[in-house]
Simulated scan of single mutants.
Amino acid sequence: MLTLLDRRARGMERTEYEVMAAVESRHWWYGGMRAIAAALLDEVYAGRRDLRILDAGCGTGGNVVFLRRYGSVAAVDLAPEAALFGAERLRGALVRASVLALPFVDEWFDLVTSFEVLYHRDVPDETVALRETWRVLRPGGRLLLRLPAFEWLRGRHDCAVHGRRRYTANEVRELLQPQGFEVERISYVNTLLLPLPLTQRFIERVAPAIDRNGSDLQLPPAMLNEALRWPLAAEAAWIARGGSFPVGLSVICRARRV
């Protein structure tokens, strides 16, 4: 039987999925993160349209749409809200399953993506999920992994989406290498806008009684939404030139199965 706390948490998660489905095709953060992901993928897959891809923890499917430019995409997500709110994007792609037990044969995929999934409380041990990822990747296949960075940046949004922990780049390396992955590129991202979440976290700490209404994913006004795209576009361009950032709200890594 669900406790009252469990029911409230489930309600918050459903709300986040619903908002995500409504805004992820237009929201500056999603667009910027996909531009950064594309910079890392184009470095090794530019011109490819034949990849077998798995989006492990697909949410409502916005990244599945993005990844189809590189080949055919399968998707898994454990939450029923993924199918409910992402039905149109995920039609024919979604399998309801856990990243801890991927329902695919060995060495099937060329690329597995995992965006803000392994830090979730439903993944109590990242190494299990990474072993599963390694198993379904063909030799030489790649993982594109993105996670929230730095525990000192933990905020209310982490609680709303049941975030278990945040990571440093070194911690990501230490997770991947023992599981048979070679780190090719790693960087912090969402760096240029870091003062904004820092200010928000400060307010949350000094005034915890202030109740913030709505999700962090709410779409801002059109002009502000467009303005916020530009810093992430600049970061994507820098990443595409081989650059990296020493600090940021997220850490992104491209690793190869060896």
Results as ranks from 00 to 15, higher is better:
E204W: 08
F150Q: 10
N213T: 07
Y188T: 11
L198V: 03
L153W: 04
V172M: 06
L198N: 02
D158H: 01
A169D: 08
A160H: 05
F150I: 05
T168H: 04
N190R: 05
E174V: 04
E182P: 01
L193A: 09
L193W: 01
Q200E: 11
A209F: 07
W152H: 12
P197W: 07
A209W: 14
E174I: 02
R201V: 11
P178L: 11
S187G: 03
D216R: 09
G180M: 11
V189D: 05
E204A: 13
F181K: 12
E182R: 15
T199I: 05
V172F: 08
P178W: 14
D216T: 06
S187N: 02
G214Y: 10
L153H: 05
V183C: 05
E151S: 14
V183A: 08
E182T: 15
D158F: 01
H162T: 00
S215M: 07
G214A: 06
S215E: 06
R212W: 14
G163Q: 05
G155N: 15
L192M: 06
G163T: 12
G163D: 05
G180A: 11
H162I: 00
R212D: 03
V183E: 09
R173T: 04
V206W: 09
R154D: 04
D211W: 09
E184C: 12
R166E: 00
R154F: 14
T168K: 03
D211F: 08
T191R: 11
P195Y: 02
V172R: 07
E204R: 11
W152C: 10
A160G: 01
P208Y: 08
R164L: 03
G214Q: 12
E182D: 13
N190A: 13
R205W: 05
R156H: 13
T168N: 04
W152D: 13
R166H: 01
